[in-house]
Design a binder for these strands. Structure first.
Lengths: 228, 228
DNA sequence: ATTACTAATCGCCGAGTAA
DNA sequence: TTTACTCGGCGATTAGTAA
């Protein structure tokens, strides 16, 4: 369920194996196959194929149940997500940067945004990777639940990675940022790895968006995301 | 121009590099970049990045011209094809098998088909990989030149590989086969690596298609290709 | 049959450095 | 500055084989 947070990239064979399983329908229906057959398809030894299967399983990308005769493989949601991201990366190449527009109502958060955005561990990363230090506070937008699935397509975008860290004895989680505009003004949508909201998206910008846009709770705003 | 005939697969980093270059527009416009920058993006050393560039260049997937300051990189058509094939493989996963229909007129070939299809070097491969021994003769279909670009999309499909070989002192080239139906009857479209025709596609089947379909030169036939 | 461990080999990565 | 060579080290692969 949680995205591939770690930045260590997959090796080509593991990716091809994942794709092979998806091709065989392992997203929906378990696929019965031996490590030998996997090896034949990938043109590697049975031993290597088996290691790949073990690795993918460890990474939570496939689920294995070993029978005496064959093993039964299923892609996990995380495995599917890896493939969808790859797909999207290629689509980006051939079809240009994706766009995603939606609108929603300004909402009050729980004041967490301010707390998180004040953490130096985050600030240095924002400065480094977004090119600015965000105003300490997120603008929360409540969107129509029907739109959520579409907005969730952002998961496939490359995004700008903000890594989690430890500080003062607690853990701060990672997040991904996506560039866009709200009512024409540049901002980033920030999606924490472990999101707490369902129908709320959080935006950050260098200034206080509430002020610079002159909006209040309940006001409708329109957001235009564009992939870099 | 010639497709990646060799079956030795690319490593993940080379593929990512190729995609990175395409992302930077190297398909159309040369990209100026140093091996250090490439390494940073791929998160490998400058030396490794350089090796990848050399490899890709050797494989004819990119063109390099070294300046004193940066190198100028362009994707070759072969490089673009590699990426397009990857793209298509993922699309196949998420959007199901592609279909491609076209129609054309039965045409006479030069009798080469019979000669090639009689070569034992090909026959064993057909039997092994297509599951039948083709009737020794291709059915040639002349198609509307306007359709050619669309039909050329077949290049992205996975296809069934027939390898080239040497026999009696000469070289026989490789080809790719794609499954489909002509007027409802199963057949394979065969696309030699070095194609001699422009607006003609060649079909093979276990029986003589001319007979079993009861068609003659000039008759219009319709072909339905479906990806496996 | 399978999966998967061990041992030996292979090949790749990156540091140092030449050009 | 670049690109790109050599080489030591180590991770990955395969053959053999145990379970």
């Amino acid at each position: 369920m949680t995205g591939r947070t770690k930045g260590h990239h997959m090796k080509a064979e593991e990716l091809r194996l994942l794709r092979f399983l998806a091709h065989g329908g392992a997203e929906r229906t378990p696929v019965d196959i031996t490590s030998r057959e996997v090896g034949e398809h990938l043109e590697v030894s049975q031993q290597a194929a088996d290691r790949y299967l073990v690795q993918l399983s460890k990474q939570g990308l496939i689920a294995r149940s070993l029978g005496a005769r064959k093993q039964r493989l299923t892609l996990t949601p995380a495995g599917v997500e890896v493939l969808r991201k790859e797909f999207h990366a290629y689509r980006r190449v051939f079809e240009g940067p994706a766009r995603l527009g939606f609108s929603g109502q300004v909402a009050s958060g729980l004041g967490e945004g301010r707390y998180y955005l004040s953490q130096p561990g985050y600030i240095v990363q924002f400065q480094e990777r977004l090119g600015y230090t965000p105003f300490p506070g997120t603008l929360n937008i409540r969107v129509d639940p029907k739109e959520l699935l579409r907005i969730d397509g952002l998961r496939d975008w490359e995004g700008i990675r903000i890594d989690g860290f430890q500080a003062s004895g607690r853990t701060f989680g990672g997040a991904s940022c996506y560039g866009g505009r709200i009512n024409g003004r540049p901002c980033h949508l920030i999606r924490p790895d472990r999101s707490h909201y369902q129908d709320v998206v959080e935006l950050i910008a260098s200034e206080c968006l509430r002020e610079s846009l002159g909006v209040h709770d309940g006001d409708t705003v329109s957001v235009e995301m564009e992939e870099s």
